[in-house]
Amino acid sequence: MIPAPFRYLRADSAAHAVDLLGEHGDEAKLLAGGQSLLPVLKLRLADPAVLIDISRVPDLSYIRVDGDEVAIGAATRHRDVVESEELRREVPLLPHVAGYVGDRQIRHRGTLGGSLVHADPAADLPCAVLALGATFVVEGPSGQRRVDAGEFFQGYFQTAVGADEILVEVRVPRTGGAGWAYEKFVRRSNDWAIVAVAAVDGRVALANMGETPLRATATERALAGGASPAEAAASAAEGTSPIEDMHADRAYRAHLARVLTERALVTAAG
C-alpha cells in the first residue's frame, strides 16, 4: 500500500517548520521518523497535502542534563534514548521504556517527540513521560511555551500541540536512584500494550486504560499514605475507562492494571 499524493518539504530548523506550518495550515503534517505516520498514510486513514520533514533539523536531536532535568530534543530517535548514558544514569525509566517501542528497525527511525505527539494511549513512551512528570516545550508562531505532562495528552491521538505548533523539547526530571519499573502486557513482544504500567518515585501511570495515558492517582495516594504495593495496586483501575477490544474487555483490563501495578511497585521498591 502507498500513501495518497502529498508534497514533501524539508525543514532546516524548528522556526522553519513553524513557518511552513503557518503557510500550509491544516493541510500539513509534520514528519519525523515516520514510524507512526507513514503506516497511517499508507492505510489512507489520513491524507495530508504536505509533509514537513523535521527529522534532519540538527537542533532537535540532543540529550543534555540541564539543572534538575534532562532536556531531550523532540526528534531524538528511540535508539539514541535507549543508548544514552546520561539518561540511563539520571532517568533510567525512560531509556528502558524506549527499548520496548516497536522493534529495532522502528527504534532506528522513530523519535521520542513523534511517539509523544502521536499520542496513542497504548504506546509506551506517553505512559513513561506521564509517570516521570515531564514538561513539554512547544514552539509556535508566537514563540515557545511549556506544557505539563498532565495537560499534554488531551484525548485519543490528541495533544496540546496546536496545528501551527511543533514540539521541540521534552524535559524529564532527574529521578536518579529512585525506584522505577515498567510492566508491559502484550501477546507478542513488539505489539502495543494491552495494558502497561510505569512506576517511578511513587508516581504511577497506565497505558491503554483510557483515551490518554492516565495517572493512577488513587494508587499514588495510597502509596503516599504508606500502603503496601498490593494494597496500593488494588485501586489502580479507579477512574479509568479502558476500551474493549479483541484482546481484553473492560474488567480484564482493570484486573491487568491492578496486577501489573502491583508488580511494578514491588520491582520499584527493589
Binding site: P39, L43, R187, R188, S189, N190, D191, M246
Partner: peptide, 16 residues
C-alpha cells in the same frame, strides 16, 4: 474484519 493487517492478526514472532 478485525484482523486484516499484520498489526492486528497475531502472526507469531521469534520471541514467542
Amino acid at each position: 474484519p478485525e484482523t486484516s493487517t499484520f498489526a492486528s492478526y497475531p502472526f507469531l514472532s521469534a520471541t514467542e
